[in-house]
Design a binder for these strands. Sequence first.
DNA 1: GCTTTTCTGTGTGTTGTCGTACAGAAAAGA
DNA 2: TCTTTTCTGTACGACAACACACAGAAAAGC
Lengths: 253, 253
Amino acid sequence: MSAKPEPQQNHLLAALSPEVQSRLFPYLELVPLPLRAVLYESRRPMRHVYFPTDSIVSLQYVMENGASTAISVVGNEGLLGITLFMGGESALSRSLVQSAGYAYRLPRQRVKEEFNRHGELLMLMLRYTQALITQIFQTAVCNRHHSIEQQLCRWLLLSMDRLSHNHLTMTQEFISNMLGVRREGVTQAALELQRLGVISYARGLIKVLDRPKLEALSCECYGVVKKETDLLLHYLPQRQLIKDNDAIPMAML
Amino acid sequence: MSAKPEPQQNHLLAALSPEVQSRLFPYLELVPLPLRAVLYESRRPMRHVYFPTDSIVSLQYVMENGASTAISVVGNEGLLGITLFMGGESALSRSLVQSAGYAYRLPRQRVKEEFNRHGELLMLMLRYTQALITQIFQTAVCNRHHSIEQQLCRWLLLSMDRLSHNHLTMTQEFISNMLGVRREGVTQAALELQRLGVISYARGLIKVLDRPKLEALSCECYGVVKKETDLLLHYLPQRQLIKDNDAIPMAML
DNA sequence: GCTTTTCTGTGTGTTGTCGTACAGAAAAGA
DNA sequence: TCTTTTCTGTACGACAACACACAGAAAAGC
C-alpha cells in the first residue's frame, strides 16, 4: 500500500484496447482498500465494479448463524462485480479485503454501457467468469476432500500469486474465518508447515520460505485453478470475440 | 423416458422469441440420455450444447485418484456447455446423466453464431450462468459446513425440482458417488430419513413422502439456490438486455 | 513502567466421517 | 429352481476436525 498503482497493474484493464481505455479510464477512481474492508455485502446493491491492482479480495458466504467462508479469491487478475454483467443488481456474497492495497473502480452505469456495446469488455468478462467458475468449482471439491493443511497451502499459494512479495499479513484467526475452520485447526496446520521449513509465521506475518515444497504439499486443486487462470492471462492480449475455429492450442491446456 | 418431449419443456429454449427459435430449432436434435451416460468428459472437446427436457445431468469433478463428486445439477431449467460461450473448447468437468430422459442438442457452431449476434441468447446465457454460479458456490459452502444427511436432503430436493414426479431411481452407491462420500454414509442418512417418514427407499427407488419435512431437514443451501433459480425463471419471459434501470424488484429477492 | 489486549500454542474429550469387512435380502440370470 | 449378482444394513477401529478451556508471550496503550 505504498506507491500509487497504475490501472494497467490490473490485467483486465491492461488488456483493453486504447479505444476502450479512452472511454473508460476517465471514470476510473482509485480507492484504497484497507484490510477487512467490505466492498459488497451479501444481498445489498452493488454500485461499482472494482479492479484490484495490488490488493486481494475474498468472496465470502455468510451463513445464517453468522459464520463465514471464503469461496474465491480475486486480485489483479480479475474484477469484482461480475453479477452486474450477469443481470443482477445485488451481490451474491460478501466481498472482504484480505490483503490491503488499492483498486480502481468504475460506476456500474459506465461499465454496463461499455458492456452493452458487446465488444472487448464482453469477451474479457466471459473469459474471466470462466476462470472464476473454475475457482469456485475447485473450492467445492477441496472442501469435500482435502485436509486443512492442504487447503491452507492452496490458499496461501492463491494469495501469493496475487502479490508481488513473498509475505502475507494476517492472523490465524483471520485465516480460519477465510477457510471456514477453527482457529486451532489453522494453528496445527501452520505449525506443521513451519516444522517442515515451508513457511515462517509470527503474530500475523507469514513468510513463504520454500514455495516448491508448498506446492508439493498442496492438493491438486491449486494446480487446476492456476492453469485456468494462466490460460485466461495468456489469452487476453489477443482481444478476439469467440469464433468456432479459434480453438485454444493444446499446448496451453 | 416415455413420450417424446417438446423443445419448450426446456425453459431456456421456451424463453427464446419466435424469431430466434426459427433460426435455431431446425438444428435441434433430440437425444435420449440413458442413466450414467457421459455428455462431456473432463478436458475433452465439447461438440454440442445440450438442453435437457426431462433428464437430469450432474457436473462432476473427477479427482486424480479417480474419485468423483457432483458439484452441480442441471435439468430443464438450464443447459450444458456454457464453457463454449465463455470461450473455452474443452469441458471443465464430466457431465453425467443422473436421471434418464431426453435432451435437445445443438451443434456448437450454430449456438456460437447465434450467441455472437449478442441478442437474447447472450442474455439468457448470462442469466443462467448467474444461477449456475450460485449453485456451485453454495455446494462449496455445503461441503464445508453441513452433514451428509443435510446434503442428501439438499440434493434430493434439487433433483425433485427438475422432475415431474416424486420419485428417483438411483442406488445408494450412485448417490455416494454424487455426493463424494462413502456408500455407508448414504445408508445411514437414508435410514434416518426413512425413520422420520420423509422418504421411502428400496433397492434404488426413492420416494419422497413428506416434502415439507425434507425441506426442513435440509440446510439453508437449498433455499438459496432455489431462490436464485426461480429468479432466473421469473425473469426469462421478459427477454431484455441489461440496462441500468431495470433493477429486479425487491419482492423477487 | 505497568496494564490490557492480541495472538499463538496446548490439552481433553466428543463427534462425524472414513476404511474395511461382512452378512442378509432382493433381483437377475441360468 | 438354483446360482450369481446387486443392493442394503451393520459393526469396529482409526482419524480428522470439532468445542471448550486455558496459559504464555508479544504487542499496544496508558
